[in-house]
Amino acid sequence: MAVVAPLPVGEAVFRARGLTKTYRMGEVEVHALRGIDLDLFRGEFVVLLGPSGSGKSTLLNILGGLDAPTAGEVWYEGHHLTGASERELTLFRREHVGFVFQFYNLIPSLTARENVAIVTEIAEQPMTPEEALARVDLADRMDHFPAQLSGGQQQRVAIARAIAKRPAVLLCDEPTGALDSATGVRVLEALERVNAELGTTTVVITHNADIARMAHRVLYLGDGRIVREERPAQRTPAKELRW
Rank of each mutant, 00 (worst) to 15 (best):
V227K: 00
H31D: 13
R231Q: 14
E11I: 01
I159M: 07
V97L: 10
N61H: 15
M127H: 07
G222V: 02
V157K: 11
Q234I: 02
A162C: 12
W75R: 12
K165T: 00
P237A: 04
V187P: 13
R186K: 15
T206Y: 13
P232N: 05
E88D: 11
N115S: 14
R87C: 04
R166L: 06
R94Q: 07
E121T: 10
P51A: 14
E230T: 13
G199W: 10
G151T: 14
I211N: 00
Y76P: 02
G64E: 04
V3K: 10
I205L: 04
P6C: 08
D143R: 03
V100F: 09
D210V: 15
D180R: 04
P129K: 00
L60W: 11
L59G: 12
H216P: 08
A215I: 08
E27K: 15
A134Y: 00
I107K: 04
R217I: 01
V227G: 11
L89V: 06
S150V: 01
P51H: 08
E240T: 12
A158Y: 08
D173K: 03
A238G: 01
G10P: 03
A71S: 15
V204C: 05
P51T: 01
T22M: 11
K21V: 11
N105W: 04
V187M: 07
A16D: 01
K239L: 09
F101D: 02
I122S: 12
H207W: 05
F14D: 10
D137L: 14
E230A: 15
R93K: 10
L38R: 05
R94G: 04
H216M: 09
P237K: 02
V187H: 08
P237H: 07
T201I: 00
